[in-house]
Amino acid sequence: MLVISNRLTIPDSELEFQAIRASGPGGQHVNKVSTAIQLVFDYRNSKVLPDSYKQALDNRSHANITAGGKILIKAQQHRSQEMNRQDALERLRALLVAAAFRPKTRHATRPTRSSVRKRLDAKKQHSQRKQMRRAPGND
């Protein structure tokens, strides 16, 4: 079971794990043992995932999201299959949390009286500094 938030958990029945051979360096161990994990999560057909998550994932362009509505994650960082499984689950969790994030809407505000006064004072000082640098008699 994958816990996304205190309201959302994804059961293991909706997650599909496949043990595959890892690529890259590692010699004979990599060539003989299937330690890499490929995690497949069909979010469009998920019964527990809310529609808001599904919409956010559909609108998001990410390398791990397919056009068919599946999330594919390949984990091969670690030497053990169980650690790669945990890594894949954590990456799926991070992707779903990022999809659920809604930035706060910005509300237009007016500058404070103090900030306006400080800005105008700074402009006056800058202007006076420039006037002092001028050659005399060029008014």
Rank of each mutant, 00 (worst) to 15 (best):
R113A: 05
A88P: 13
Q81P: 03
V30R: 10
I20R: 07
Y43C: 07
H78A: 06
S80L: 09
S114C: 05
A122I: 01
S115M: 06
G69A: 11
I73M: 01
K118M: 14
T105P: 13
A100S: 10
Q18V: 11
F17M: 03
Q81L: 12
S80G: 10
T66N: 03
L89G: 07
A94N: 09
K123P: 04
R106A: 13
V40Y: 13
Q128S: 09
L89T: 06
R91D: 04
I20N: 07
L89E: 05
E14R: 09
R106Y: 03
I65A: 05
I71A: 12
L2M: 02
D139Q: 11
A108T: 07
Q55R: 07
I71Q: 14
V3C: 11
D58T: 01
V97L: 08
V48M: 03
H107V: 14
D139P: 09
N45D: 04
K54V: 00
K118A: 13
R102C: 12
G137Y: 02
L49W: 00
N64H: 12
N45P: 00
G24L: 01
A88Q: 06
M83Q: 14
I37M: 15
A63Y: 05
Y43P: 01
S127H: 13
R133H: 10
R79F: 00
R106P: 02
A122L: 06
G68T: 12
L95E: 10
V33I: 08
K74R: 05
I71H: 04
L8I: 07
Q76S: 02
S34D: 10
S23C: 11
Q28F: 05
S114P: 04
A100V: 04
L2V: 09
K130N: 08
I71T: 02
A88G: 07
N59C: 04
D58N: 13
S34F: 06
K130Y: 02
D87C: 11
N59H: 06
P50D: 00
S46T: 13
I10D: 01
Y53C: 00
D139C: 08
V48H: 04
L120M: 11
S114E: 10
V40E: 15
E14L: 03
R21H: 02
V48S: 07
R134G: 15
Q28T: 02
T66P: 12
N138Q: 14
T109L: 09
D12A: 10
H126Q: 15
K130F: 01
Q125V: 11
F101T: 15
D87N: 09
D42V: 00
A99D: 12
A36C: 04
N138E: 13
T112E: 01
